[in-house]
Design a protein around this nucleic acid. Structure first.
Lengths: 201, 201
DNA sequence: TTGACATTATAACTACTGTTATATATAATA
DNA sequence: TATTATATATAACAGTAGTTATAATGTCAA
């Protein structure tokens, strides 16, 4: 009794995402997506209530792509993979990264840090000497260690994204991350539960 | 032979800047500035060729405000003052910071790092033991040290700006910065001119 | 084949933008 | 005082945005 839609939901999302990739979020409009799709604006509005809703869907899709970057096995270290994936995404998908975190940011979900913490301990298991030392750190010290790594990773990603740092080679990025991580780690061991615990005042 | 203008250049800039402060760059338009000024759009165009030029002027003005933040003497340490001022600006002038570095970024001027490096050495003068140790580091090691500090500062500023970290107290910000700086510094001393020098491959 | 209905295209509405042409008012000069 | 240059206001132009009313199209069911 009806007619099959010729433009699918995913076609629309993909077209819009491609627009962000190529020209950034500011290039996304109902008409621009339609043009990319070779249609009028109507198919878009039949799959999505508004442009605002389209934006939400695009954010979900983009976050999925980021997740892919972060879940690849660049190294043996889970935490390092997460951090490197984040920076590589900022470098290789400049407009998507800008869309997610710079131009149209929403509140950073609290998971971001807790996930990093988990994988951090998954990495430094009970085998390594580092793992043992880490376990002896206070809870607050552990959290702080992950926080510091996260802050540094975020900073590096922004600067690489903006072009302030031109890190074409993956090795260079990895070295930055490893060096910083090592610095924080060693510092944390020495200061374990010392300066770290009195966090707010 | 002419009439004194009732709306001055600085009045216009200030009105526009206030708009950014309150509602972000996206709220700035010829008509919006005029409304804030209680005038028509004409006085704006008599002082400024276009909105694009207005944006340039606003960026200069905003950068001046950032500089003020960075030049205050929060502590004894010049580098720490620079870093803290940057983060405090990101926290206290959210929309101005977003205007400068997030929404409408331009290429980061290379000075940013070189300035930090200079003040870094001005701080750790020849008096302190740290200063001496620092001098013994290779040139590349010194640069890296400043880079790492800069990256961390940038990351912290972004996260504080976005609300991911809610650091109301100056002390908390200072502790983050000092801890990270100390970690990098100690790490740099140990590794002096070791891993640090082979920077790109 | 015909009727009903979903999908799509066209075009319009409203609201906003930067910019400018025109008109008005005002103050300094002759 | 009359003239003239300038500042400002009003209003318009062209372009864009989101959204939607209307019309055309095509497909399925009877």
């Amino acid at each position: 009794m009806n007619q099959p839609s010729v433009y699918s939901y995913s076609q629309i999302i993909d077209a819009a995402l491609e627009l962000i990739r190529e020209q950034g979020w500011s290039a996304v409009s109902a008409r621009a997506v339609a043009k990319k799709l070779g249609s009028s604006t109507m198919p878009i509005y039949s799959h999505v209530r508004s442009i605002e809703e389209l934006e939400k869907e695009l954010r979900i899709k983009a976050q999925g792509l980021l997740k892919e970057f972060q879940q690849r096995q660049y190294t043996e270290h889970t935490l390092l993979n997460l951090a490197f994936g984040y920076v590589a995404f900022a470098r290789d998908e400049k407009n998507l990264f800008r869309f997610l975190y710079l131009e149209r940011p929403e509140k950073l979900n609290p998971e971001d840090t807790s996930v990093m913490k988990e994988s951090f301990f998954a990495e430094f298991g009970e085998n390594s000497a580092e793992g043992k030392a880490l376990k002896e750190m206070q809870e607050s010290g552990q959290e702080a260690l992950v926080q510091y790594t996260w802050i540094f990773t975020h900073g590096l990603a922004m600067l690489v994204n903006s072009g302030a740092f031109d890190l074409n080679s993956d090795k260079a990025i990895l070295r930055f991350l490893m060096n910083a991580g090592e610095a924080f780690y060693l510092w944390g061991i020495n200061k374990a539960g010392d300066d770290l615990e009195n966090k707010d005042d």
